[in-house]
Simulated scan of single mutants.
Amino acid sequence: MLRVVGNTDNLEPAALYLSRDWLPASGEETRDFPIYCQRLSFPEHEAVADLFLPLK
């Protein structure tokens, strides 16, 4: 899980970090399920979203 705080209009950079940088370095394997997002708050200056990368 990666928490994104601030502007959450474009979560692609965070998702790419999880899949291209963190995942290979972690030694983990993904499940057959896509990355998904849970938005915790919406005001732009206080927005918070969690990105989940399902692992085996």
Rank of each mutant, 00 (worst) to 15 (best):
R31A: 15
L11M: 06
E46Y: 12
L11E: 00
D21L: 07
L23I: 00
E12T: 10
L23T: 02
L51M: 05
P54Y: 11
D9Q: 13
E44F: 08
I35P: 03
D9G: 11
Q38G: 10
E28N: 10
A47T: 00
I35T: 03
W22C: 10
A14R: 05
S41C: 04
L2S: 09
A25V: 01
L2I: 09
G6T: 05
F42R: 13
T30S: 13
P34T: 04
A49G: 04
K56Y: 09
A15T: 04
A47E: 07
E29N: 08
P24D: 02
W22K: 11
S19C: 09
A49N: 02
H45T: 14
N7Q: 09
A15C: 06
L40R: 06
R39E: 13
M1K: 11
A25G: 09
E44M: 07
S41D: 07
L2D: 08
H45L: 10
V4R: 05
K56R: 15
L40S: 00
R20Q: 14
S41A: 11
T30R: 15
D32K: 15
A47Y: 08
V4P: 03
Y36Q: 11
Y17N: 01
T30Q: 15
L53T: 01
M1C: 13
I35V: 13
R31P: 03
L2A: 13
L53F: 06
A47P: 01
E28M: 12
R31S: 15
C37F: 03
L16P: 03
D9T: 05
V48A: 11
D50P: 05
G6H: 10
L18H: 02
R31D: 13
P43C: 04
I35N: 08
P54N: 09
G27A: 06
L18N: 03
P43S: 06
P13C: 03
F52V: 08
P13R: 04
M1D: 06
M1N: 09
A47H: 10
F42Q: 09
L2G: 09
R39I: 06
